[in-house]
Nucleic acid binder design. Structure first.
Lengths: 341, 341
DNA sequence: TTTCATTTCCGAAACGTTTCGGATATGATT
DNA sequence: AATCATATCCGAAACGTTTCGGAAATGAAA
């Protein structure tokens, strides 16, 4: 392995000056920089990141920790996020560390250890829960981190988020404006911030229209097709009069809902209107539905580069702060929503 | 941050002795070790991995590099592998680094840089291709690595692999023994070792039975349902007489084949026998087929811990070598194969 | 000529750990 | 009393880099 000392000997320069040449400091003459660059290439020099880290205190590594083995299709979006983030950070010169912990591991322990090891400059948090203890911990420890999602109202931490509240509110408004009064919600798992925000938007939307809230009309669970199949059928069996409209928190749930409604011999939108939120994942396209699906839409992938930018700016004080963002959504009315019968 | 020096001051011991106590060397008295442990907990000490790396030359990090964004469903297995490996390495005290490079990046450059950075103790290679240049490079550089798959016959490098040749050979034998003479193969993408091995086994199986090879009966491509749909229909339209049996290189392809045969109004197994290889991914279960699918089977997940063991043993010379393995497959005859009509 | 700013350089210290070689104390053996 | 083995400890060097403070050379300004 070639070191700075080797280079300095070879060039008749001090180690200091070679280091400064390589890092492009401005008290090195252009000609020296050129000589150093050439020698470095010739001797195959490349900076030892470990040694650099020891003195700078920065490792150039960011870490994403996930609990439990990822299985499909529930974690499709989780995978896409990992893939997208890894690429973004690579391109910014950071190493992306993925740490999968066995199901049910105490996050506080894991994060404490990860921080204490000093190996990471920052963390990316996904699947934020209400009152997420990881956020409190990392804030207390003073470590840079960014959350895919948001915990609490108007949080201090850096985040990238979708307007989940607004999405649900808009969906309900669209349906109530059409005249619907009994609106079902197929939602994600309880406890996650995005799920709870959707519920808030849903409730406020109903309240605006003067519709009483009926908790039988909300079904929570993994956002997969089979879950929607079960929830939809259960909902239409249990509740009389049955809902006239259905909100699906993602496209997979919509697929299951379509299937269930078809099985129940109900037509979309004549018997039941369906509206969904589209994360625009590469695997499931909203365009493939018949009848065409009315959606709110905010592409997941819009977030990867933003998240990377935010975290990098938090890590490197020389960069100017990138603000947290809440991306707006689009509304696309297609054929799956109409007036109630 | 608490350092060894802080601990040593606090305890009235030398830095040396504290270090040796923490690393459980045997020239430290039991009582001292206990005192050190307590003080470490009290002061919240945790070893600085960067500093340790600098002197030991090992970082405790392994790296997996992938080219191009992962999309579903083609890369389902890739995702499961990443998830599984990350967990295994975490449990062994290693950091798992995932580096996604933009599509088409030159792997030699990327790996050279990764090795030169000195950040990684070892590499995991997936999606091995015939004459994989990464293998030659890493061998030349003398870096520990393990391949999920195998390049070349009887390779020197460490690997975990499935008996792909044997799988295809067995599948063909089963079909020829039943009396089939025209056997189609829906295979993975060309160029990958596993695909080519399957072809070798397929050809040898045909040769054993004295059946001439017909290249129209092999279709290569991404191992996804839609590809099988296209390939199967094309095969049955183009070739006269049509095949009486179909080998599918994985379960997704089998799903597409079932769909296509149903569309073509052909019955399984009366008109066409179908046999597939089952990687046992959590997302697609072979058991869900009707008629029940005859398979060869070797679970992907069997490999994660083996791969981790192999690489760890290559990295840490104090551990005894774990040998490369080729796992055997099981054969499960179900209802999708029978004599030709 | 002297002074001063600018450019270009360098030695030494520091980051936190491990390890090498040796030191000291204790008690047993000769 | 002298020798030796054992258990326990320690100082100093080393890993490869960055950075602090200052030095030397150059040319312009006084």
């Amino acid at each position: 392995m070639t070191t700075l000392k080797d280079l300095s000997r070879h060039l008749g320069l001090s180690v200091t000056q070679v280091s400064r040449a390589i890092n492009d400091h401005d008290d090195v003459s252009a000609s020296t920089k050129e000589r150093v660059r050439e020698a470095a290439k010739e001797l195959g020099y490349s900076v030892n990141l470990t040694a650099r880290s020891l003195v700078t205190g920065r490792t150039g590594m960011v870490c994403l920790i996930r609990d439990g083995h990822l299985n499909l299709p529930e974690h499709t979006s989780g995978f896409e996020v990992i893939s997208g983030l890894s690429m973004e950070f690579s391109q910014r010169g950071y190493q992306f560390n993925l740490q999968m912990t066995p199901e049910g591991t105490d996050p506080v322990k894991v994060y404490k250890k990860a921080v204490a090891s000093g190996s990471f400059d920052g963390f990316i948090l996904t699947d934020a829960t209400v009152n997420d203890e990881r956020v409190a911990l990392l804030e207390e420890l003073g470590v840079p981190f960014v959350v895919h999602g948001r915990v609490g109202e108007d949080p201090k931490h850096a985040y990238f988020d979708i307007d989940n509240y607004g999405v649900a509110l808009h969906q309900v408004r669209h349906l109530t404006t059409l005249g619907h009064k009994r609106i079902g919600l197929l939602n994600g798992r309880d406890g996650y911030v995005y799920s709870e925000s959707r519920i808030d938007g849903y409730k406020d939307g109903l309240a605006e229209a003067g519709i009483a809230f009926d908790d039988r009309l909300i079904r929570s669970g993994p956002m997969i097709e089979d879950q929607a199949l079960i929830s939809t059928i259960a909902m239409f069996q249990d509740i009389d009069p049955a809902p006239t409209a259905l909100i699906c928190s993602n496209i997979l749930l919509a697929k299951g809902a379509y299937h269930a409604l078809s099985a129940l011999n109900l037509s979309i939108p004549q018997d039941v209107s369906v509206i969904a939120h589209d994360d625009v994942l590469s695997s499931i396209r909203a365009s493939a539905f018949y009848p065409a699906l009315t959606v709110t839409k905010s592409p997941f992938e819009d977030g990867y580069s933003v998240i990377a930018d935010i975290l990098c700016s938090r890590i490197d004080p020389s960069q100017k702060d990138v603000e947290s963002v809440e991306v707006p959504f689009k509304f696309i009315e297609r054929a799956s929503t109409d007036k109630p019968a």
